[in-house]
Computed example of a mutant assay.
Amino acid sequence: MAYKVLVVDDSSFFRRRVSDILNNEANLEVIDVAVNGKDAVEKAITLKPDVITMDIEMPVLNGIEAVKQIMAQSPTPILMFSSLTHQGAKATLDALDAGALDFLPKKFNEIAANNDDAGSLLRQRVLQLARRRISMRRSTTSGIVTRKSQASQTPTASKIRPVQPSTPSKHRVKTDKHYKLLAIGTSTGGPIALQTILTKLPKSYPLPIILVQHMPAAFTAAFANRLNNLCQIDIKEAADGDLLKPGCAYLAPGGKQMIITGTESAKKIKILEDDSERLTYKPSVDISFGSAAKVYQGDVLGVILTGMGHDGREGARMLKSKGATIWAQDEESCVVYGMPQAVTIAGVSELSLPLNDFSEAIIKETANG
């Protein structure tokens, strides 16, 4: 039986084109369309689709408010379409906070043309979220963001994320291990996963942190700023020449590659322009993790979080070969169990943890850093 999709957009052309693309997949069926957010909320409740694609800018009720209401009344995986602007990035991050699981840039030229790559990507992302719907139906609890000025998260947002209750992790703290870097790679579902972990790290956290999140170039600066406002540690979009400092996290800029270079006493970040077609992901977890292996050797705790595909597997393998420690997010708490599964199946990951357990485990593991 095909997964049911509700397409939401105020543009009749975009509704029709997205519907045509999705209906070309045998496992997907667009059961209806909605012309604004209010219409989307009503149809989400009555039709109970497996996935919703949602525009942000709409009349009557915008996409962000629609996501909040859907999460409160009929939690459903939602993929947002976003413009590639600073304002579009901010709105998309707001939608993810509200409960949306994923997003794609809204590129009219690619959607209008018979672009096989764009159509294939859209179908793939919707299928992944549709499969996640099964796990969401089983989910009953979730904990998300602890803000500097706000201890609780909007209740509507918590219902979407199938995160296990936070319980003490049964893992061995390596008291003889002296870490010098925490490296985290993630993709689909990553923005909220990173928030969940990083907001719980203390201001005095002893290591520098590199973050690789698959995200368009227009989004990473806004995301870094948001994380910095939420967290006690300092977080910035990485810039060429940044020195890696304890208690500071560096987010790889979208559309480029971030590598680690430097000497023992002055390790720094190098940002590379990447116009090659060889690498699918820009930034790439493999590239950043691989460079960390060369510079930091085995003094790294590498973490692979929720995401589609297998980016990070080879970089984590390089780190592991130098003696580094690799952890992965467990299947139940992932939005998409792709990247963590890849390192787990490859035998690279030593431990699988629920999302809510990572912060405490990281703090304990790196206490001797």
Rank of each mutant, 00 (worst) to 15 (best):
S19V: 06
D20V: 11
N27W: 09
D32Y: 06
G37Q: 11
V51D: 11
I52Y: 06
T53H: 14
I56R: 06
M58C: 10
M58K: 06
P59R: 09
G63F: 05
I64P: 02
I64R: 04
I70R: 00
S74V: 01
P75Q: 13
P75V: 09
P77V: 13
M80S: 04
S82P: 06
S83F: 01
K90S: 15
A91V: 11
L93G: 00
D97A: 14
G99R: 03
L101A: 05
D102G: 05
P105H: 13
K107L: 14
N114T: 11
G119W: 05
V126D: 06
S135H: 13
M136K: 13
S139H: 14
S142N: 15
T146K: 13
A151I: 13
Q153R: 10
I160T: 14
I160W: 09
R161L: 15
Q164R: 15
V173G: 04
D176P: 12
K177Y: 12
G185W: 00
P191L: 02
I192E: 05
L201W: 03
S204F: 00
A218K: 02
F219G: 07
T220A: 08
A221T: 08
A221C: 09
N228A: 10
C231I: 08
D242N: 15
L251R: 04
A252F: 11
G255K: 10
K256G: 00
M258E: 09
I259G: 04
T263H: 11
K270E: 08
K270H: 07
D275V: 11
D275N: 14
T280L: 14
Y281C: 02
P283K: 03
P283M: 02
S284Y: 02
I287V: 15
F289N: 01
A292E: 06
Q297E: 14
G307F: 02
G309T: 07
R313N: 10
G315F: 02
G323F: 03
T325W: 03
T325I: 09
E331A: 04
C334G: 01
C334W: 00
V335F: 07
Y337R: 05
Y337F: 11
M339L: 02
P340W: 01
G347Q: 01
V348G: 00
A361K: 02
A361C: 01
T366A: 04
G369P: 03
